[in-house]
């Protein structure tokens, strides 16, 4: 099972003729994903590494049956490209792009939600189900297949979580980076709901950070979950009013800070770690191992 993707997932790369896009088309295909083509307006009819390039998402979907897009277009074109993907019927969009204006992110994520499309990002490292589908910058050779779901804003925290789970002999079902920008297509709760419904997933690691209410708002759902949740909130030592790498990682209102998020998640029954290096040990203990 796993979440978000399956063996039938058919992927297009928007922006496939650029350096980043063509590189990802190769990497994703090499790690087992079914990449069926790409889109770059005005470049239709060409090929990139044997993959057909289409002028539009509509053409790509019609010709290939694609249902998923990994988007690498330059930020100024992301607004149009994301709307086009949703309009063409794409059901999962990974916005790998960073530096998308907040206003554009707000509009495109609202549009996608209204049309039933899941958007990861902006500034998402993607998602990966080891051994099946890779839609991420992570290299599956470092991932152990198993029963733990991982959701984090940060791509680095996705990789670190998988590493410290592996140290405890625990593998992952799906790893999801929801992105580090202030406005996101999916928040922690959206992904936790999918992990809870996934029979293959036996526990979830959730890494949150300062800024926004995503983690705080996830707490009521964590309380209802039947699977153990190990949670870490990073950025608690950040100086006030500083952007900590991610555009969205900035101390704000009380419920946007680490202590309130930790308290809410602890009250919901999550197993809290002080930092990401503890997630494997905590999950092992939560699973009764």
């Amino acid at each position: 099972m796993a979440i978000l993707t399956g063996p039938e997932t058919r992927v297009i790369v928007q922006g496939i003729t650029g350096n980043v896009g063509s590189g990802f088309a190769r990497r994703l295909a090499a790690s087992g994903s079914t990449v069926v083509g790409g889109v770059t307006p005005g470049r239709g009819g060409r090929q990139v590494d044997g993959l057909p390039v289409f002028d539009s998402c509509h053409e790509a979907v019609t010709a290939t049956g694609a249902d998923t897009s990994f988007m690498c277009v330059p930020a100024p074109f992301a607004f149009d490209a994301c709307h086009e993907a949703v309009d063409a019927g794409i059901k999962l969009v990974v916005l790998y792009i960073e530096n998308i204006p907040f206003l554009d992110a707000l509009r495109m994520t609202a549009y996608a939600r209204a049309r039933g499309t899941v958007v990861l990002g902006p500034n998402s490292a993607g998602c990966v189900t080891p051994g099946r589908v890779n839609l991420s910058e992570l290299d599956p050779k470092f991932l152990l297949k198993g029963n733990i779901g991982v959701v984090a804003k940060s791509g680095a925290m996705c990789a670190e979580s998988a590493n410290y789970l592996r140290e405890e002999g625990l593998g992952v079902t799906t790893i999801v980076s929801i992105g580090g920008d202030p406005v996101l297509g999916a928040y922690h709760r959206d992904i936790l709901e999918r992990f809870e419904a996934d029979p293959e997933t036996k526990g979830v690691v959730m890494v949150g950070e300062i800024g926004g209410r995503s983690e705080y708002d996830a707490a009521p759902f964590v309380k209802t979950m039947t699977k153990p949740v190990v949670a870490v909130i990073i950025g608690g030592s950040s100086p006030p009013d500083r952007q900590m790498g991610h555009l969205g990682a900035r101390l704000g209102a009380e419920e946007e800070n680490a202590p309130a998020k930790r308290a809410a998640l602890a009250a919901a029954g999550a197993h809290l770690g002080d930092n990401v290096t503890e997630v494997g040990r905590l999950m092992r203990r939560a699973l009764g191992g």
């Binding site: 984090a152 804003k153 940060s154 791509g155 680095a156 925290m157 670190e160 580090g180 890494v207 950070e209 300062i210 990073i234 950025g235 608690g236 030592s237 950040s238 900590m244 790498g245 991610h246 990682a249 002080d274 930092n275 990401v276 290096t277």
Partner: peptide, 13 residues
């Protein structure tokens, strides 16, 4: 460091 998550984690730790 390389990565926003690591930036925060390293400072926290």
């Amino acid at each position: 460091v390389s990565g926003a998550g690591l930036m925060m984690t390293v400072l926290d730790m």
